[in-house]
């Protein structure tokens, strides 16, 4: 006899529950107990879980109904979601594939000088530029140039899209406290959910062979800081300057373009720096769902216990991370300096 029988009879719910003869196998523990020929002997007072209550009352759900329910619900919604989301996200696949093709097709003797030139243009710092050149050569020497370029192409696309969407969202949030209040929990969620967790529904929605699958996963994860810091940056703009803008009759657009965005730029740049770093972190995990690049080698290291392969790829990721960080930080300080503080 189950522990909660008395509870249901005391509440007069025995009839509603139906007969408890129904001896459908309940759980693995029960099966084991039955095999042992005795009643399952749990703790003195079992925790009132679905499964335990179900033992006393057939009408109560079992926990596996919950997981089944979620799965069925999701599967039922899938065709609708797919017809909506598929066309919308299709350009992402094209962009990712296109960038991948471009980065790979470009001969190294053009690509490497180009990257070094971009670093110089963004940072205007000799040490940073030299560091970039040396790091890329190091990666090339150990034959990791190609995979590094694949990773870079994904980061390039995902960061661009994150900025393209993140900055306007951040601007909208800074204008409306209501919007901010409703978006912040969502951002918190995106940032705290273990990255694997939102890979699961994405795998259901899109096929693993499509590049937008990892693209979406990376963007969802990496867009958060740029949104947050755009919002923060605009909110932190000196109120006196905003008042002056109003007093001279600027309209909202002029205020945004001439005052708020330029003054928030250091914060926005800091957000972009974090977005780049987070897409790099995610691109490694995304190799689980067929994202190419350095992450694949790390994964191989783990799966096949090939220590050397894993570590070299790991060092490659670190190098890439330091390059991206240094270049974007140097660009940030450059912007900061033109806006000398009071």
């Amino acid at each position: 006899m189950a522990f909660y029988d008395k509870l249901f009879s005391a509440l007069g719910l025995s009839d509603w529950c139906g007969t408890s003869d129904d001896k459908a196998p309940l759980s693995l523990a029960d099966l084991a107990a039955q095999a042992g020929g005795q009643e399952a002997s749990g703790p003195l007072i079992p925790i009132p879980s679905f499964d335990n209550l179900h033992e006393s009352c057939n009408r109560v759900w079992q926990s596996r109904d919950v997981t089944n329910g979620i799965e069925e619900g999701f599967l039922a919604a899938k065709p609708v979601l797919k017809t909506v989301l598929d066309p919308i996200t299709q350009p992402l696949s094209w962009m990712l594939d296109g960038a991948l093709w471009l980065f790979e097709a470009m001969p190294w003797f053009i690509m490497v000088p180009l990257l070094v030139a971009i670093s110089w243009y963004a940072s205007r710092s000799r040490p940073v530029t030299i560091f970039v050149a040396v790091s890329i050569m190091l990666l090339a020497v150990v034959d990791h140039y190609d995979v590094a370029m694949q990773t870079l192409s994904i980061i390039f696309v995902c960061t661009t899209i994150s900025v393209l969407f993140g900055v306007p969202i951040g601007i909208a949030m800074s204008k409306s406290d209501r919007l901010q209040k409703s978006v912040v929990p969502l951002l918190d969620l995106l940032q705290t959910l273990p990255t694997f967790v939102y890979l699961i529904p994405l795998i259901f929605l899109f096929s693993v062979t499509e590049s937008k699958l990892y693209g979406i996963a990376i963007i969802l994860y990496a867009i958060v800081p740029v949104i947050r810091l755009t919002d923060l940056g605009i909110r932190l703009v000196d109120r006196d300057v905003i008042e002056a803008a109003n007093a001279f009759g600027m309209n909202d657009r002029q205020k945004l373009m001439r005052v708020q965005l330029p003054l928030a730029l250091p914060n926005i740049m800091a957000g972009i720096n974090q977005t780049i770093m987070m897409s790099l972190a995610m691109v490694v995990i995304a190799s689980l769902v067929s994202a190419p690049g350095l992450g694949v080698n790390v994964l191989r290291g783990i799966r096949n216990l090939e220590l050397g392969v894993g570590i070299v790829a790991g060092i490659g990721i670190v190098l890439l991370a330091v390059i991206l960080d240094r270049v974007s930080k140097a660009a940030l300080t450059r912007v900061d300096k033109t806006q000398v503080k009071h």
């Binding site: 008042e243 009759g249 003054l263």
Partner: peptide
């Protein structure tokens, strides 16, 4: 907005200049 542009201008205690613009651009704002 029109009145603010054409009828009255304001000078502030904390100056409230645009830090990212030159003096010339600030004055021409």
């Amino acid at each position: 907005r029109h009145a603010r542009q054409e009828k009255m201008s304001m000078v502030f205690q904390k100056f409230a200049l645009l830090p990212h613009k030159t003096v010339l651009k600030n004055a021409g704002m």
